[in-house]
Design a protein around this nucleic acid. Structure first.
Lengths: 409, 409
DNA sequence: AATTAATAATTCAATTCGATTTATTTATTG
DNA sequence: CAATAAATAAATCGAATTGAATTATTAATT
């Protein structure tokens, strides 16, 4: 019995419960997704280049890419001349091949976006509210979606992959911080948001935590290609995050991987508090009020912030000090190559937060710590909506080793 | 019969960018490992049962298991009668199919064990020292291995899968804690332990951090089957650990995933210190000295501890309080289903540490935390040696999704 | 300018190999 | 004997690989 074995190495990206078997059909599905993700990562690649990068034979790549081109997912570009040999034909994603919708539920507003295959936002609708409630929210889903759908052709509609929802965990426990009556918030209890939306929408619905969704956006459309594993932090009304391992989103058994908010850190006075009490925008809002400043500009638009001066500086310092502790703590658990920080604020705030965090980390005891790079997110304040819209892409087009394995009962 | 295909691998579960393609040969290799791991997990399973659990067709399972039986890796048991239909034939691992060696390098002693395919320690040699040094250690490898090999037949020797090494990170930075002259410790600098051992041993050598190795042992021979993902903590002279995600060892990009030692926690007086300064046996040793108690019994044998009274109680309390913070911090990053605690101490100490940690966790702010179970390790104080010996099994027989993917240059 | 060599991308055709499907046999209970 | 379940043999299917051919281009030479 002859064995031609491979060199073994690592744990797959996203991690999977390896209890199912693999077969040919799945191998093909996996390889197709792999080819597309390589094209996505590099913008455009020739068949030969994909063969080199994937390790697949040139012939296999030809067959797969011909099929993907026939499906309209890939487009051929202008042949590249100037080098010896037959010119290579760069293939790139067809931006119009697939669309998806993404719903973000925020503290002050909800957005629905229509996204194309390469992450471009084609259309967007927004609704603002003092605080989110199930009834009005579901009404917005129906009305907003209708508005977006009205602008596209039936052909385009047929190419919609799904409807992704980026929502915070346990809306009802926000009441005091959101400034909403507990009775109203209690209406969320027992609401199966995914099911409610699925019954109102003619597409596959995927629900995911909002910060995790933002992390997904960063993975596909942001810095994902540069870091094989990273911890992602999104500072919204409440801080949250996501985890990427081996270039795949890792959501964990309960879907709360990267939640990070409950991580204990020491505050300014040395007291131990949860990270979310410090590094969240609701905290800045309170600080502004304490300083007699109207916090409303925070909510008009993430890019409409003005420099609030001292209270903003204080908030950034406190946030950075807390984030620095979170960075070191998480690096002690997983040796992330990067911590990517983004949030519902303008780029200049993000820059200050990241710089302050880098400085704060340097002040900590780093002996034995494998320190990750601390970098700014590339997607920005819309990461949650974009991430929501990217969720359907994950289930259909992005590589996921689980595609290889049988689903067991 | 051992397969002759494998070359010496680096650590089994390092990281891979999932950019490689998959093919049939790899699918078969993966499915073979999957079948064996199912048998391993359940002790013995019939072909039909494996087909149900893996989702593979009965015929595929027949072919795979017939081959594994022909290779001597599986043995058929007594047919199970008493149920309708043809009696099922339970298949189990042949304990003598594969052996492996494991070297553990500790602070006071080194062990080499010879392990069978189901985790049984067949033979063992130990050498003690005031502190480890490269020259004597390598001499021990040669002499100890010769001693173990002398007791086995050439046929048995042909079935040895490899030589696994469980060693601490950066031996040289121990000096002060180990009580060794810095000059002696500096001899470790620049020593490529894996290469040195590989040049003295006729088997594939696999090197891994000692606590990560212990984690591997727990995964294969301990509670692994019960928890799909867990954080593993091993309290030795210094605390360390490992990470298991989706039933696979996750070592991370740099191999330091789960190192945990540098995690900042608050000590008894509220000061922030690294976990390893509190939850390590060297700390207990210092405490005993401060109380005028001879700490030598700590080092004779992990099972030879006596109840040291007050200082031990203090150490357990401090350790538990620190571990509790580590548990909450890690749970904020990854939603582990369990934290498994073991160490180089007797079972009754482990029990007290775990109970105290559970109590300490309950005193923390757990709002929003997905709390893992906190449980005792099932492998015990020999986990590092057993884990070392299990490393070669990972590269050859245990499911590792990477088997599916091509390795790229 | 024409010719030849070298190189690289792509594809065709044939082959291989493992999982699946279909059908059959075997062993047991009731 | 009917029903049931395990096990397996033979045939089929599908995807990747191999090896050779085709095409398009640059580089060097006459």
């Amino acid at each position: 019995m002859i064995r031609k074995d491979a060199t073994a190495h690592a744990v797959p990206a996203e991690i999977l419960d390896p209890s199912g078997g693999a077969n040919q059909v799945r191998v093909r599905a996996y390889n197709e997704r792999l080819v597309m993700s390589l094209v996505r990562r590099h913008g455009s690649l020739s068949k030969a280049e994909i063969a080199r990068r994937s390790g697949l034979s040139a012939q296999t790549v030809t067959v797969i890419m011909r099929a993907l081109e026939a499906e309209g997912l890939l487009m051929r570009g202008e042949p590249m001349r100037g080098k010896v040999g037959q010119p290579s034909v760069p293939m790139r994603l067809n931006p119009d091949a697939v669309y998806s919708f993404g719903l973000k539920i925020g503290r002050r507003s909800a957005d629905i976006v229509m996204m194309d295959f390469v992450g471009g936002i084609r259309r967007q609708v927004r609704r603002t509210y003092p605080y989110p409630m199930p009834g009005p929210l579901l009404a917005f889903v129906v009305e907003g979606l209708a508005e977006l759908e009205a602008a596209i052709t039936p052909e385009e509609r047929a190419r919609i992959a799904g409807f992704g929802v980026a929502a915070p965990f346990e809306l009802w426990s926000w009441a005091s911080e959101v400034g909403a009556p507990q009775a109203d918030m209690d209406q969320w209890r027992g609401v199966d948001l995914g099911a409610e939306i699925a019954s109102r929408v003619p597409y596959p619905v995927v629900l995911q935590n909002d910060a995790t969704s933002a992390c997904a956006a960063e993975l596909v459309f942001g810095l994902g290609p540069q870091y094989p594993d990273f911890l992602y932090l999104f500072i919204g009304s409440f801080i949250g995050g996501g985890v990427v391992l081996n270039s795949a989103l890792f959501t964990g058994r309960t879907g709360t991987a990267g939640a990070i908010g409950p991580l204990p850190v020491q505050g300014r006075d040395g007291e131990t508090v949860q990270l979310l009490k410090i590094a969240s925008i609701y905290r800045l809002e309170n600080l502004l009020r304490e300083h007699g400043i109207d916090p409303k500009p925070l909510w008009y638009s993430p890019d409409g912030w003005i420099d609030f001066g001292a209270p903003l500086a204080i908030w950034i310092e406190d946030t950075a000090a807390a984030l620095a502790q979170a960075v070191v703590a998480s690096a002690s658990v997983i040796d992330f190559s990067a911590v990517i920080i983004d949030g519902g604020f303008p780029a200049w705030v993000r820059e200050r937060v990241v710089a302050a965090t880098q400085a704060a980390v340097a002040r900590l005891d780093l002996q034995g710590v494998t320190l990750p790079e601390i970098v700014e997110g590339a997607v920005g304040s819309a990461a949650r909506s974009i991430g929501g819209a990217s969720l359907p892409l994950f289930s259909r087009y992005l590589p996921d080793q689980n595609v290889l394995f049988k689903e067991l009962a």
